[in-house]
């Protein structure tokens, strides 16, 4: 069986070049044309960028709808979207646009942000590097996770779902090669609810569920 090579990554955010959105209609129009990387950034890369660690919602669109459009209905509808359930980011885009279109059909006045609170469309570059650490056997997974950085966790457990095989994290893909003995590990990893976990919390959760399977 192949060992698991632990990678790490760092993220650098940059401006996407899209104009800012001042109101909900502009947000909709920009989301319709922005690159997949922009959409991915605002949905999935949020745990890696500086942001207060106790937001109501995990994606930037829902946060903006709540804080700056003062549209809590829209925030709730956008906030429940789990981007990792979508195998194709274009399907995610369609769903977001559908939610916004529905909201635009409901409101009498287009929700608008105050000056200075516009939505900025960002994206990020990810640099990946080999840490040199190797996990030889699934029984070493828990200790290896304990020693990983939060960004390693992000790369192997969250970002991995965007790479082929899509929607599968690197740990589960590796464990699948070890046969049915480790199927419970995969099921345990699949059972983690990502929505409200910071990367540090996710790391704790991963070590807990992996340790429970080893007992």
């Amino acid at each position: 069986m192949k060992p698991f090579h632990v990678s790490d990554c760092t993220l650098l955010t940059n401006m996407s070049g899209l104009p800012v959105a001042v109101n909900l209609r502009e947000l909709r129009d920009r989301i319709a044309i922005c690159s997949a990387d922009v959409l991915y950034h605002h949905f999935c890369e949020t745990p890696l960028v500086p942001f207060f660690d106790n937001p109501d919602y995990r994606n930037d669109f829902a946060v903006w709808a709540k804080l700056h459009l003062n549209d809590r209905v829209l925030a709730e509808r956008l906030g429940i979207i789990d981007p990792y359930l979508f195998a194709d980011i274009e399907i995610l885009r369609s769903q977001v646009l559908d939610i916004i279109d529905e909201r635009l059909s409901e409101v009498q006045v287009v929700p608008t942000a105050l000056s200075g609170s516009e939505f900025y469309f960002l994206e990020a570059t990810t640099v990946v590097f080999d840490t040199g650490n190797v996990i030889e056997h699934p029984t070493g997974l828990r200790n290896a996770i304990l020693n990983m950085t939060n960004s390693s966790i992000y790369f192997h457990f969250l970002e991995a779902k965007r790479r082929p095989p899509v929607c599968i994290d690197d740990f589960s893909a590796w464990l699948a090669d070890w046969g049915s003995d480790f199927e419970p590990y995969i099921q345990a990893l699949r059972s983690i609810d990502l929505m409200f976990l910071s990367l540090a919390e996710l790391k704790n959760e991963l070590t807990t569920v992996v340790a429970m399977q080893g007992e």
Binding site: L11, L12, T125, V127, F129
Partner: peptide, 29 residues
């Protein structure tokens, strides 16, 4: 979020990106 280690890491990431002349969203170094 705001100690020098995070700051240094982002500068190093930027140097990697500029010096590698890579334009992909994600790349290995």
């Amino acid at each position: 979020h705001f100690l020098l280690t995070r700051h240094l890491r982002e500068y190093l990431t930027l140097f990697h990106q500029l010096l590698s002349k890579r334009e992909e969203k994600m790349f290995y170094v």
